[in-house]
Simulated assay, not measured.
Amino acid sequence: MLTLEGVGKRYPTGDRALSDIDLALPKGQVMALIGPSGAGKSTLIRCVNRLVEPSQGHIRLDGDELTTLSGAGLRRARRSMGMIFQEYALVDRLTVMENVLSGRLGYVGFWRSFFRRYPEQDVREAFRLLERVGLDHALDKRADALSGGQRQRVGIARALLQSPRLLLVDEPTASLDPKTSRQIMRLIRELCAERGLAAIINIHDVALARQFADRIVGLNAGRIVFDGAPSELTSDILTTIYGEEEWDTRVGPEEPAEERSAPPRAFDVALSGAVR
């Protein structure tokens, strides 16, 4: 589904963020990117949807070469890639429903969205998604009145309203407490399973990555140093990824059975699938 071949990124300062990245992500797979700060995780995700321009290599989604697209072609490609951000990227003065409906901007255009003239089928789907993420009771709340976990759920619903084929998730639990972090990761995993979506999740929490991802890719200094199943992530491999530390590779306290998972500017960012 998604393939990266020889992808690299060098900034004008000369700093190299990514080097020779080769990856293939099949449909329906949830991949976690782990690694120390500055390893290139966010850069890799943003190269896929061209929020960051790769310096070299090829990125293909269902056979379409993304690195050569521009204008309308790039906007169409971005519609198929839902982005979920660490800092939520909501418009605080808008309601929950309005923020979710902004996920359709790539389809309905600016002026129809400006006057809140979304097609009825989009509004119905937004209602369904908000019910699915547990926010159907908060449709008319302003985004700045929500908790961190609720704001992330709005971001998830907005990304899914794009009808994406791929989810790009950038540190979704960085600002959340441990319980809410598990709930958000479980929700993303379940939604990917329900919709047959592939996902790349940049995450710092190794335990969450092992618990909820099908596959883990470890980056260090812009290079892939591990690519395998969560069960293969040993203490030695964690040392290779992060450096010396006393690693305990257990996931952590067992969850209750009913909680287990099945196997910028805010407005600009919200429009990233439509106008960049």
Rank of each mutant, 00 (worst) to 15 (best):
C192Q: 08
D268V: 12
L130T: 03
L69I: 02
A174E: 04
A229R: 10
F115A: 03
I156V: 02
A266C: 03
A193R: 15
I184E: 05
S113T: 12
E258K: 03
L208T: 05
D236Y: 01
P119N: 13
E98V: 01
A159Q: 07
D144A: 01
L146K: 10
G14H: 11
R76Q: 09
R153D: 00
Y242L: 05
V96M: 01
G106E: 14
R195H: 15
L161R: 09
L130P: 03
A24L: 07
I241W: 14
V30N: 03
L168T: 02
Y107Q: 09
P230W: 15
R50N: 07
V48K: 06
L90N: 04
V206A: 03
G106A: 15
R60Q: 10
I84T: 00
M83N: 04
D92T: 00
L146G: 04
R265H: 13
L146Q: 08
R223C: 10
E87D: 06
M1E: 12
L74H: 08
I184S: 04
G252I: 09
L139N: 06
R16A: 09
L238V: 07
Q29T: 13
Q86P: 03
H137N: 07
D170H: 01
E131C: 01
R60S: 06
H58S: 14
A274Y: 12
L166V: 00
T95S: 14
T239Q: 11
E194K: 05
L208E: 05
W247I: 00
E246Y: 06
